[in-house]
Design a protein around this nucleic acid. Structure first.
Lengths: 182, 182
DNA sequence: CATCGCATGTAAGAGGTTACATGATTAA
DNA sequence: TTAATCATGTAACCTCTTACATGCGATG
C-alpha cells in the first residue's frame, strides 16, 4: 500500500485538492505515514490516468486556482479491494534505537541529549494527536481507535525512556555485561 | 543514517562477512532496522572504496569463500562522527494503522482478521527480542536498553489492541460519532 | 519588508526492494 | 530428492526525498 491508496482514502471522505490532501496527511496520519508534495502530486496524476480519481479546476478569488479531486466509482471499488487484501505491515525505522544500541561509543552527554530529544519529539507527537482528537470533528471509530493506539504506543515509549534513562547512563561506564553473573 | 553506518556499527564489534552482517541485522536490529543483501553488499563495496572498511578473502573447506570485513581506523572515526551528529529520528510506516483508520469501509470479519494478524506479528517480535536477550551473550547496556525499549513498545501496542478491539468492533456499525453529544 | 499560507508541479538523486544468477554441502 | 544453509553479487525497478520554480495576498 502506498501514497496512492492513502490519497484515495482521504478522497473517500470528501473531495479535496492535492494541497488539502497533504494537510490531512499531516493532521491525521503524520505519526504513521508521511508523504510530501513530491509523492502526492504524482500519485494524483497516476490515479487520474487510471480513472480512479477525477478533478475539476476551481477558480478562486484572491487565491490560486485549485484542482479539486474526487473519487470515481471505479476508484471506490479499487480502494475497497486494496484495503481488503493489504497485509497489515507496521515498519519502524529508528535511528534513535541505532544510537541507543551504540551508546557505549558515545559520551554520556550525547546519550543524554539523544534521550531528551526523543522525549521532546514524543511529547510533541502526543500533543499533536490530542489536538487532533479534540478538534470536535466527527471521527470514525477507526480513526479514534488509531489515534488511541498511537498515543498508547508513544506514551509507552516515553515512559520507558524516562524510567530507564538513569540506568543506561549509570551502566554505560561499566561496559558490556553478561546475562549471568554465576 | 543508512545501511552503511549500521554495517560499520556491526563491524565495530567484530569482523564479519556480508552474510554474517545480515544475520546480525536480523537477530539484533530487525525490529527497528531492515536491510537485505541488496543493500548490504553495495554498502560494503562503497565503504571499501571510501577506505572505511577493508576485507580479506578467506578460503574455507567445504564452504564458499568469504570476504571478511574489518573497520579501519578512518572507519572508526567516521562511525563515531556519524553517531555523534545523527538526529535521533524514529519513523513509523504502518499499513496496519491505515487499515484501522478505514475500518468503517471494511467488513467486521476483515477488521478482526487485521487486528489478530497484527497481534500475532507483535507476539512473534516480542518472542524474537526475548530469545535475543536470553542468548547468554554479553550485551552492552545500550543494546539491553534498546531491546527493553522495543519490548515495552510492542507490549503496549498488543495490550492496546487487545483491550480496545471489542470497542472498535462494536462501534463500527454506529458510524462516525462527534466528540460531544450535547 | 519579510515571511507565511495558498497552490501547483518537476527533476534529479538517493535509497531500498525484488528477483535473478551461481554453486557446493548437508540435513530431512 | 528436496530444501535449507552458506556465500557472493548485479540489475531493474520503484518509491520517496529534496530542491527548484513560480506567484499572489495577507499578516506581522
Amino acid at each position: 500500500m502506498d501514497t496512492k491508496t492513502l490519497c484515495m482514502g482521504v478522497l473517500s471522505q470528501g473531495d479535496a485538492s492535492g494541497y488539502e490532501i497533504k494537510k490531512v496527511f499531516e493532521q491525521a496520519f503524520s505519526y504513521f505515514f508521511v508523504a510530501g508534495y513530491g509523492s502526492i502530486y504524482p500519485a494524483l496524476a497516476d490515479l487520474t490516468e487510471k480513472g480512479w480519481v477525477a478533478c475539476t479546476n476551481v477558480e478562486q478569488e484572491k487565491r490560486p486556482m485549485k484542482k479539486v479531486y474526487h473519487l470515481t466509482e471505479a476508484g471506490h471499488r479499487q480502494l475497497l479491494q486494496e484495503l481488503n487484501k493489504a497485509y497489515p505491515h507496521h515498519r519502524v525505522r529508528s535511528e534513535f534505537m541505532v544510537l541507543t544500541c551504540y551508546a557505549h561509543l558515545l559520551p554520556q552527554g550525547r546519550v543524554e541529549q539523544v534521550l531528551e530529544q526523543r522525549c521532546r519529539d514524543i511529547e510533541a507527537t502526543i500533543a499533536h494527536i490530542d489536538s487532533f482528537i479534540d478538534e470536535g470533528e466527527a471521527l470514525t471509530p477507526g480513526v479514534r481507535f488509531t489515534a488511541g493506539f498511537g498515543k498508547a504506543v508513544f506514551e509507552a515509549a516515553r515512559d520507558y525512556i524516562e524510567s530507564h534513562k538513569g540506568m543506561l547512563l549509570a551502566d554505560m561506564d561499566k561496559g558490556p555485561s553478561a546475562k549471568e553473573s554465576k
